[in-house]
Amino acid sequence: MAQHIKSVVPDHPASVAVLKHALAVLLNMFFIIAFTVVVALFTGKVREVVSLMAAFAFLRQMTGGVHLKSGMGCVLVSVLLFTVLSYVEFNHVWTTGATVVSMFLILLYAPAGIENQTRIPPRYFPLLKVAALIVVGCNFWFVNPVTAAGFLAQSLSLISLRRWRTS
Protein backbone atom coordinates (compact mmCIF):
# COMPACT_ATOMS: atom_id res chain seq x y z
CA MET A 1 0.00 0.00 0.00
CA ALA A 2 2.82 2.38 0.87
CA GLN A 3 4.51 1.66 -2.45
CA HIS A 4 1.26 2.39 -4.29
CA ILE A 5 0.73 5.67 -2.43
CA LYS A 6 4.30 6.73 -3.21
CA SER A 7 3.83 5.83 -6.89
CA VAL A 8 0.64 7.87 -7.10
CA VAL A 9 2.18 10.86 -5.27
CA PRO A 10 5.93 10.58 -5.90
CA ASP A 11 6.68 14.14 -4.75
CA HIS A 12 5.22 13.62 -1.30
CA PRO A 13 7.96 14.20 1.31
CA ALA A 14 7.21 11.01 3.27
CA SER A 15 9.37 8.01 2.41
CA VAL A 16 7.95 4.55 1.73
CA ALA A 17 9.21 3.46 5.17
CA VAL A 18 7.38 6.32 6.89
CA LEU A 19 4.22 5.57 4.92
CA LYS A 20 4.48 1.87 5.84
CA HIS A 21 4.76 2.71 9.52
CA ALA A 22 1.82 5.14 9.39
CA LEU A 23 -0.31 2.60 7.55
CA ALA A 24 0.61 -0.13 10.04
CA VAL A 25 -0.47 2.06 12.96
CA LEU A 26 -3.74 3.01 11.27
CA LEU A 27 -4.54 -0.55 10.21
CA ASN A 28 -3.77 -1.91 13.69
CA MET A 29 -6.05 0.68 15.25
CA PHE A 30 -8.80 -0.06 12.73
CA PHE A 31 -8.62 -3.84 13.21
CA ILE A 32 -8.50 -3.57 17.01
CA ILE A 33 -11.60 -1.36 17.07
CA ALA A 34 -13.48 -3.31 14.40
CA PHE A 35 -12.80 -6.81 15.76
CA THR A 36 -13.43 -5.76 19.37
CA VAL A 37 -16.75 -4.13 18.52
CA VAL A 38 -17.83 -7.15 16.45
CA VAL A 39 -17.04 -9.47 19.37
CA ALA A 40 -18.84 -7.06 21.73
CA LEU A 41 -21.93 -7.19 19.53
CA PHE A 42 -22.04 -10.94 20.11
CA THR A 43 -21.34 -10.68 23.85
CA GLY A 44 -23.68 -7.76 24.46
CA LYS A 45 -20.88 -5.70 25.99
CA VAL A 46 -20.63 -2.88 23.42
CA ARG A 47 -20.95 -0.05 25.96
CA GLU A 48 -18.30 -1.58 28.20
CA VAL A 49 -15.90 -2.25 25.33
CA VAL A 50 -16.22 1.26 23.94
CA SER A 51 -15.60 2.71 27.42
CA LEU A 52 -12.60 0.44 27.89
CA MET A 53 -11.03 1.27 24.54
CA ALA A 54 -11.52 5.00 25.09
CA ALA A 55 -10.09 4.97 28.63
CA PHE A 56 -7.18 2.72 27.66
CA ALA A 57 -6.26 4.69 24.52
CA PHE A 58 -6.61 8.10 26.18
CA LEU A 59 -4.35 7.08 29.06
CA ARG A 60 -1.91 5.35 26.72
CA GLN A 61 -1.34 8.60 24.80
CA MET A 62 -0.07 10.22 28.00
CA THR A 63 1.78 7.32 29.56
CA GLY A 64 3.08 5.08 26.77
CA GLY A 65 3.57 1.42 27.58
CA VAL A 66 4.85 -1.84 26.24
CA HIS A 67 4.56 -2.53 22.51
CA LEU A 68 4.27 -5.97 21.01
CA LYS A 69 6.64 -6.98 18.23
CA SER A 70 4.00 -7.77 15.62
CA GLY A 71 0.92 -5.91 14.51
CA MET A 72 -1.12 -9.09 14.43
CA GLY A 73 -0.05 -9.91 17.99
CA CYS A 74 -1.11 -6.44 19.08
CA VAL A 75 -4.52 -6.85 17.46
CA LEU A 76 -5.12 -10.28 19.00
CA VAL A 77 -3.95 -9.31 22.49
CA SER A 78 -5.92 -6.04 22.42
CA VAL A 79 -9.16 -7.68 21.25
CA LEU A 80 -8.79 -10.40 23.89
CA LEU A 81 -7.90 -7.88 26.62
CA PHE A 82 -10.83 -5.56 25.89
CA THR A 83 -13.24 -8.48 25.61
CA VAL A 84 -12.15 -10.01 28.92
CA LEU A 85 -12.08 -6.66 30.74
CA SER A 86 -15.59 -5.87 29.52
CA TYR A 87 -16.80 -8.53 31.98
CA VAL A 88 -15.16 -6.90 35.01
CA GLU A 89 -17.60 -6.25 37.82
CA PHE A 90 -15.56 -4.63 40.60
CA ASN A 91 -17.39 -3.41 43.66
CA HIS A 92 -16.65 0.06 45.09
CA VAL A 93 -13.65 -1.14 47.12
CA TRP A 94 -12.04 -3.00 44.20
CA THR A 95 -12.70 -0.10 41.82
CA THR A 96 -11.05 2.30 44.24
CA GLY A 97 -8.17 -0.12 44.77
CA ALA A 98 -7.59 -0.54 41.02
CA THR A 99 -7.61 3.24 40.65
CA VAL A 100 -5.06 3.66 43.46
CA VAL A 101 -2.78 0.95 42.00
CA SER A 102 -3.05 2.57 38.55
CA MET A 103 -2.04 5.93 39.98
CA PHE A 104 0.87 4.38 41.86
CA LEU A 105 2.15 2.64 38.71
CA ILE A 106 1.82 5.87 36.72
CA LEU A 107 3.71 7.75 39.42
CA LEU A 108 6.53 5.18 39.29
CA TYR A 109 6.79 4.37 35.59
CA ALA A 110 5.06 6.91 33.34
CA PRO A 111 5.78 7.88 30.72
CA ALA A 112 7.33 4.69 29.38
CA GLY A 113 8.63 4.06 25.89
CA ILE A 114 7.28 7.19 24.23
CA GLU A 115 10.62 8.81 23.49
CA ASN A 116 10.61 7.73 19.84
CA GLN A 117 6.82 7.74 19.45
CA THR A 118 5.91 11.35 20.12
CA ARG A 119 6.83 14.84 19.07
CA ILE A 120 6.39 16.05 22.63
CA PRO A 121 9.78 17.15 24.00
CA PRO A 122 11.03 15.15 27.02
CA ARG A 123 10.94 18.27 29.19
CA TYR A 124 7.13 17.98 29.11
CA PHE A 125 7.04 14.31 30.17
CA PRO A 126 6.45 15.25 33.85
CA LEU A 127 3.34 17.15 32.72
CA LEU A 128 2.12 14.03 30.92
CA LYS A 129 2.52 12.12 34.19
CA VAL A 130 0.53 14.76 36.09
CA ALA A 131 -2.18 14.78 33.41
CA ALA A 132 -2.40 10.98 33.55
CA LEU A 133 -2.67 11.06 37.34
CA ILE A 134 -5.50 13.60 37.09
CA VAL A 135 -7.33 11.54 34.45
CA VAL A 136 -7.09 8.34 36.47
CA GLY A 137 -7.90 10.22 39.68
CA CYS A 138 -11.20 11.32 38.13
CA ASN A 139 -12.34 7.74 38.60
CA PHE A 140 -12.53 8.43 42.34
CA TRP A 141 -15.48 10.63 41.40
CA PHE A 142 -17.08 8.35 38.79
CA VAL A 143 -16.15 5.02 40.45
CA ASN A 144 -16.54 3.20 37.15
CA PRO A 145 -15.28 -0.41 37.40
CA VAL A 146 -14.80 -0.88 33.66
CA THR A 147 -12.77 2.32 33.40
CA ALA A 148 -10.75 1.28 36.46
CA ALA A 149 -9.97 -2.05 34.78
CA GLY A 150 -8.89 -0.30 31.58
CA PHE A 151 -6.70 2.13 33.51
CA LEU A 152 -5.17 -0.72 35.50
CA ALA A 153 -4.39 -2.74 32.36
CA GLN A 154 -2.78 0.28 30.73
CA SER A 155 -0.83 1.12 33.88
CA LEU A 156 0.47 -2.45 34.11
CA SER A 157 1.77 -2.10 30.54
CA LEU A 158 4.16 0.58 31.82
CA ILE A 159 6.20 -1.97 33.74
CA SER A 160 9.19 -3.10 31.73
CA LEU A 161 9.79 -6.80 32.19
CA ARG A 162 13.40 -6.27 31.08
CA ARG A 163 13.97 -4.32 34.28
CA TRP A 164 13.18 -7.43 36.35
CA ARG A 165 15.18 -9.99 34.34
CA THR A 166 18.61 -10.96 35.58
CA SER A 167 21.36 -11.51 33.08
Rank of each mutant, 00 (worst) to 15 (best):
K129V: 04
V37I: 15
K69R: 14
M72R: 12
F90C: 02
N28I: 00
L127C: 13
F56S: 02
T118L: 09
I120V: 15
V93I: 14
T99V: 09
S102T: 05
F125N: 02
M72W: 15
H12P: 03
K6E: 02
R162T: 03
P122F: 06
R60E: 14
Q154Y: 01
V88G: 00
A24V: 10
I106Y: 03
F140W: 13
P10S: 00
F58H: 01
V130N: 03
L41I: 07
A131Y: 00
H21W: 06
W94H: 08
S167P: 12
A24D: 11
V84S: 09
V136T: 06
F56H: 10
S157W: 06
P13W: 07
T63N: 10
G113V: 04
N91Y: 04
S51E: 15
T36L: 05
M103T: 02
E48Y: 02
V135S: 09
N139K: 11
A40C: 09
M53G: 01
V9S: 04
R119E: 06
Q61K: 14
I159T: 06
S160L: 08
V93S: 07
V100S: 01
P126G: 09
L80Q: 05
H67R: 07
W94K: 08
Y109F: 15
L152W: 07
D11H: 12
S15G: 15
L105R: 05
H67S: 04
V100D: 02
Y87E: 11
Y124E: 11
L19Q: 00
S155F: 06
L152Y: 06
K129F: 04
V75I: 15
A54F: 13
G137M: 03
S157A: 14
Y87I: 04
A110S: 11
C138P: 02
V84D: 11
V16E: 15
P111S: 01
N116V: 12
F58R: 00
L23A: 02
V84R: 10
V66I: 14
W164I: 12
Q154M: 04
N144M: 03
F56N: 04
D11C: 04
I114N: 07
R162N: 12
H4G: 07
H4S: 13
W164S: 04
